[in-house]
């Protein structure tokens, strides 16, 4: 196995250009090292951990910019994330175990592109973008287009994630990230649902509703039809229940050792409803009317 510790992004990207599919990028290593032990070693390992200046959380022009090498624990303990992106904070807080959060990076969680990746549904509803370096320059890839399938993203074999840009949601918006798993810690979500609700001026209607679903499709997805059913509408109980049913119908889960597809659909419906209820309560201080 060839092994490199590039010291610059340019060097890393040129290694990826040279080795293509044969190269594997490693950052925190909590997933890659397991694959190397139990599946196979790549022909070339590109360890980007020594590239300086890639671990940071910065607020800039209405966005939070998070370096790809930022450990999940840094996100969890960041007061600016807790205050301005509570939805992302919640998923960082529920992420694996403390040991893993100290090691795993947000860039790794994104590039791994697991449908159940803890931070992905929240980043989808926050309408984040991935800023990626290619040999020809940089591209900004919206999360809504980034994921192509399990383990597959628009980065392909030659792009390197540099930064995640998260636009700060409107101050009136409130959200929830709900994860369904058997144990609290170290458990992969059977279903993860992220909800973000922005009220209109009067606080009766939802100006904007975003719903992200994790672990119930080949990629994390937005429940677009459920969002549309609620957008601009008064948040009434029957409508919220209908939207939750629509979200379940938009999911396409598989059956595996964690749960059956049918069970997952039920959980999508329940968590979507709960997420909408919680978010609306946080927005207005009131329960959703009958």
């Amino acid at each position: 196995m060839d092994y490199f510790e590039p010291k610059t992004l340019r060097e890393a990207v040129s290694l990826l250009a040279r080795y293509g599919e044969k190269a594997k990028v490693i950052a925190g290593g909590t997933d890659v090292l397991v694959d190397m032990k139990f599946k196979e070693e790549p022909l070339c390992l590109v360890n980007i951990k020594r590239i300086p200046g890639m671990s940071y959380i910065r607020e800039e022009k209405g966005s939070l910019r998070i370096g790809a090498l930022t450990p999940i624990r840094e996100i969890e303990t960041s007061s600016v994330v807790r205050q301005k992106l509570p939805l992302l904070w919640e998923s960082a807080h529920q992420f694996a175990s403390l040991q893993i959060r100290n090691t795993a990076t947000i860039g790794g969680n994104v590039c791994r592109a697991s449908p159940s990746g803890e931070t992905l549904a929240p980043l989808l509803v926050l309408e984040a973008s991935a800023v990626a370096r290619f040999s020809k320059g940089e591209k900004k890839l919206p999360f809504t287009e980034l994921f192509l399938g399990p383990g597959k993203t628009l980065l392909g074999a030659k792009g390197l994630l540099r930064e995640i840009e998260v636009p700060l949601p409107s101050k009136e918006s409130r959200g929830a990230y709900l994860k369904h798993a058997v144990r609290g810690a170290m458990d992969i979500a059977m279903v993860g649902v992220a909800v973000l609700v922005t009220p209109d001026g009067g606080g009766k209607k939802a100006r904007d509703v975003r719903i992200g679903l994790g672990a119930v499709a080949p990629t994390p997805i937005r429940a677009k039809r459920a969002e549309k059913a609620l957008r601009g509408k008064a948040m009434a109980r029957a409508l919220v229940e209908e939207a939750a049913r629509i979200a379940a119908s938009e999911s396409s889960p598989i059956s595996d050792q964690r749960s059956s597809a049918e069970y997952r659909r039920w959980i999508v419906e329940t968590l979507t409803r709960r997420g909408l209820e919680q978010s609306w309560r946080a927005v207005t201080g009131k329960e959703i009317d009958g």
Binding site: T30, L33, A96, Q99, I100, N102, T103, M186
Partner: peptide, 21 residues
Amino acid sequence: GECGACTVLFNGKPVNSCVVL
């Protein structure tokens, strides 16, 4: 990286040493 039996302090922070290079 799931059970914690290999936990060590890495620059003062607990990590699972089995999934650290």
